[in-house]
Simulated scan of single mutants.
Amino acid sequence: MLKTLVAVATIFACGAAYADGANASGSVSADSDRYGIGKPIDNAAIARWNIDVSPDGRGLPAGSGTVAAGAKVFAAKCAMCHGKAGEGGIGDPLVGGAGTLTSAKPRKTVGSYWPYATTLFDYIRRAMPYNAPESLSADEVYSVSAWLLYKNGIVPEHTTLDARSLPRVKMPNRDGFIPDPRPGAL
Rank of each mutant, 00 (worst) to 15 (best):
E140L: 04
I124Y: 01
A98H: 13
K151N: 08
Y130W: 04
K108Q: 15
Y116A: 02
T100R: 05
F121S: 10
T159I: 04
W114C: 00
H158S: 13
Y150H: 15
G97P: 08
R107S: 11
E140M: 04
A104T: 13
T102C: 00
A127L: 12
I124P: 06
T119M: 10
V144S: 04
K105E: 07
Y142W: 10
A117P: 02
T119F: 00
T119G: 00
K108Y: 13
Y123L: 03
V110Q: 02
T160N: 11
A132E: 10
N152W: 01
L161V: 12
W147K: 02
Y123F: 14
A127I: 01
S103K: 09
K105V: 13
A146Y: 06
G97I: 03
H158E: 10
R107D: 07
Y116K: 10
P156D: 15
L161A: 09
Y150R: 06
T100E: 06
T109R: 08
D139K: 11
R107H: 11
L120H: 01
G96V: 10
T102Y: 02
K108G: 00
K108H: 12
D122Y: 03
S112P: 06
V141A: 04
Y130K: 13
V141T: 14
R107F: 08
T100W: 01
Y142K: 02
V155N: 02
A98I: 08
L120C: 02
M128Q: 14
A138G: 01
L136S: 07
A98K: 12
A127K: 14
W147N: 09
G99N: 06
V155T: 12
Y123Q: 11
Y116L: 00
A132K: 12
I154G: 05
W147M: 05
Y123S: 10
D139S: 13
L136F: 04
L136K: 00
P133A: 11
R126S: 05
L101G: 05
D162H: 10
G99H: 11
E140S: 10
N152I: 01
P115I: 12
L101Y: 11
P106Q: 09
P106K: 07
G96M: 03
T109V: 14
V95H: 05
L101Q: 11
G153A: 03
N131F: 11
V95P: 06
G153K: 10
L149E: 02
L149C: 06
L136D: 08
L101W: 12
A138E: 09
W114R: 05
K105S: 07
W147V: 07
V141Y: 06
G97T: 06
A138W: 03
T118L: 13
T159K: 04
V110Y: 05
Y130N: 11
L101R: 12
S112A: 15
V144T: 11
D122G: 09
P133C: 07
T109K: 13
P129Q: 11
T118E: 04
E157P: 06
T160D: 03
E140H: 01
T100Y: 03
L120V: 15
L101T: 05
D139C: 10
M128T: 03
K105D: 07
A132W: 02
